[in-house]
Amino acid sequence: MFLGVTLLIALIILPFGLGSYGLSLMISVLIFGLFAMSLDILIGYTGLVSFNHATFFGVGAYVVAILFYRGWDNFWLALPAAVAASVLLATVLGLVVLRSSGPYFLMITLAFGQMIFALAWKWRTFTGGDDGLPGIPRPDLGFPVSMWNEQNFYYLVLVFICLSFLLLRQLFRLPLGRAIIGVKESESRMQALGYNTWLLKYLAYVIAAGFAGLAGVLYVYYNGFISPQELNWTMSGMAILMVVIGGTGTLVGPVLGAGIILILQNLLSAYTERWPLVIGMLFVICVIHVKDGIAGYVMKLWEKGWKGYESPGSEKPN
């Protein structure tokens, strides 16, 4: 709690200490952090390593852009429509991909992700093909606050990521969320206890897609542009790295992971053209050395110094 409040205060005062470059980087970090956080629902809480998470991010972004191109530029209409589209796609895709599990699930999600990627590429009348859809303006919230101001947009993103975090944290304290965690821990035991584990995984998949779609919405408003590249498997892979580096099953960790990767990417690309090589090596190092992620590491230190062990999210006695 104390840690969380400190972090929040730091995030609130941060824009005052940053230049415009730093601020725009931080906005990206938060948007991708939300994206990674939504993937953590699957990897860290449900035990599903999904490789098409970029699909839902991209669909959210595309829906906003397509609506704008057809004259619907109301933020309060586009946002729910985009999230709904991601959720809807997940309810359909989930029916097919969740018939399998483990590595098979991973490969099938990857293949389906590339299917949607190819579709975005080919369906020019809607998506603009490889040219993408440029020129998406910042949203008009209907308040007298301009979103063209980077600082204001930063706070908008911050509000969304905080709300998402609180919602998800609450979810995993409710019986439904506890049951989803149970599936990650032992699916066979959950079935033996009477849980429809397929349904739980399906719900998690759909919920995660919704939040990924939300991240996509913020992304397209911020970036002003969306292209098929944002649906590519490299995006999904990058999100997995963010989750693992930051710490699975922590919600906050993936945001840290997003920060580390994006900041590193920005620093490196300023110095060398070879930054994909370095990122690749980062993946390798991450696998060989990082066990619980940064958040896991910090939490362990914290618990060692502060209190005895308590399982993640343990409820207080009734």
């Binding site: 997995i240 790295l241 693992v244 994909p276 090589l277 993946f283 390798v284 991450c286 696998v287």
Partner: peptide
């Protein structure tokens, strides 16, 4: 270790 394999080989694809 499924997740690690994914990360590692994805990293190599980048490299």
């Amino acid at each position: 270790r499924e997740l690690d394999q994914v990360l590692l080989t994805f990293g190599f694809a980048y490299i």
